[in-house]
Amino acid sequence: MTTGFEERRQESVPDRVQHLLHGRPTLGPLAVLLLAVIVFSIINTRFLNPENLGLVLQQVTVIALLGLGQTLIVLTAGIDLSAGAIAVFSSILMANLAYDAGFPGPLALLAGLAFGTAMGAVNGFLVTRVHLPPFIVTLGTLSVFFSLNSVVSGSETVRGTDMPAIMTWTGETIPIGSFHLTYGSIIMLLLFGVFFYLLGWTAWGKHVHASGDDAEAARLAGIRTDRVLLSVYTVAGAVYAIAAWVLMGRLASADPNVGTEYNLDSITAVVLGGTSLFGGRGGVIGTLVGALIVGVFRNGLVLAGVQVVWQGFAVGLLVLLAVTIDQWIRKVRA
């Protein structure tokens, strides 16, 4: 039997907000995104120009895709520090197979997708079969893949004009008035839709959430948690490889020297999107919103004349705030 004081406390505004965000973790990031759009549109009226909004979407496409793969892993209470390395190495493999080895464009793309998937599977094998912590595994493969990237590429960029057109097709745009939508952005949005369905309405998605929320309870319930984890890392590798294709379209080249910040940016998108770093709670739509928050803040701060160093400072504060809110939300017990 609860006392009157306890009943009033349960109905307090902070408690209701806490329960609401626990059940719908995307609401918080959406509110932040909306507030950022309003503030930056007031600071500079050019912010809401269709050309600028199209640019923001193009700028976040690769990070959003990497964040999509990262979300799958974070939902299982893991982390992937090799996301950017897999994407960049996959792009180099695709480009060199087409440019140096003379592979037809579609075959080079398929080979690159296969290599990216295999790199993700290697991470999953080390986590599930060798039983190494995800942080250590992906920290190690980060160095391995970036080193192999330098060896294969010879630290030289392959220009888009030296590759089949399909390699950079994702960078082509569809004009919608003065708004320009790239094929890469369309691919990104379609993939988010696919994984939104897979995580929310399939047995695999429920197993992913259960494995991250309480792995031992999931195992006792009959879920093959090791198999789920292996599938998650493998699928994430495939998503990173698709991000590699989009990256080549974005840069109109395959550059082995990019991507040093991609790992942290993808994790930032996941955290800002409301997915818990402790696993079991969150979703891909939040990650898309998180990537847009980063893109909106960086673009808006540029238009406001803020120096680059302070842009990173602002994004860092957002991450700290998001993690703090996540810790507060996790204290909810229904």
Score class of each variant (00 low, 15 high):
residue 4 G to L: 14
residue 12 S to D: 07
residue 13 V to C: 02
residue 28 G to M: 02
residue 29 P to W: 09
residue 32 V to Q: 05
residue 34 L to W: 00
residue 35 L to I: 11
residue 45 T to N: 15
residue 47 F to L: 14
residue 50 P to A: 10
residue 52 N to L: 04
residue 53 L to T: 02
residue 54 G to D: 07
residue 57 L to N: 08
residue 63 I to G: 04
residue 63 I to E: 03
residue 68 L to T: 07
residue 71 T to A: 03
residue 80 D to W: 02
residue 80 D to M: 02
residue 83 A to N: 04
residue 87 A to Q: 10
residue 88 V to F: 12
residue 95 A to K: 11
residue 96 N to Q: 09
residue 99 Y to I: 00
residue 101 A to C: 03
residue 103 F to D: 01
residue 112 G to E: 04
residue 115 F to D: 15
residue 117 T to W: 00
residue 125 F to T: 15
residue 132 L to M: 09
residue 135 F to C: 00
residue 136 I to F: 04
residue 140 G to L: 09
residue 143 S to W: 00
residue 143 S to P: 01
residue 144 V to R: 07
residue 147 S to M: 05
residue 154 G to P: 03
residue 155 S to G: 07
residue 156 E to P: 02
residue 160 G to R: 05
residue 161 T to H: 03
residue 164 P to K: 11
residue 176 I to A: 12
residue 180 H to L: 13
residue 186 I to R: 04
residue 190 L to Y: 03
residue 191 L to D: 02
residue 197 Y to M: 09
residue 197 Y to P: 07
residue 200 G to L: 04
residue 201 W to S: 14
residue 208 V to H: 10
residue 208 V to R: 07
residue 209 H to T: 11
residue 211 S to A: 15
residue 219 R to N: 10
residue 223 I to P: 04
residue 224 R to H: 12
residue 224 R to L: 13
residue 229 L to C: 06
residue 231 S to H: 10
residue 241 A to K: 00
residue 248 M to R: 09
residue 254 A to C: 05
residue 258 V to I: 15
residue 259 G to H: 15
residue 259 G to N: 14
residue 265 D to I: 03
residue 273 G to L: 09
residue 277 L to E: 02
residue 282 G to K: 03
residue 283 G to W: 02
residue 283 G to Q: 01
residue 285 I to M: 11
residue 288 L to R: 05
residue 294 V to W: 02
residue 298 R to L: 12
residue 299 N to Q: 12
residue 299 N to G: 14
residue 302 V to H: 08
residue 303 L to T: 13
residue 307 Q to R: 13
residue 308 V to T: 14
residue 308 V to D: 15
residue 310 W to D: 05
residue 312 G to K: 04
residue 321 L to S: 11
residue 325 I to H: 06
residue 327 Q to F: 15
residue 328 W to E: 12
residue 330 R to P: 09
residue 330 R to M: 10
residue 330 R to G: 06
residue 331 K to A: 07
residue 332 V to M: 07
residue 333 R to K: 13
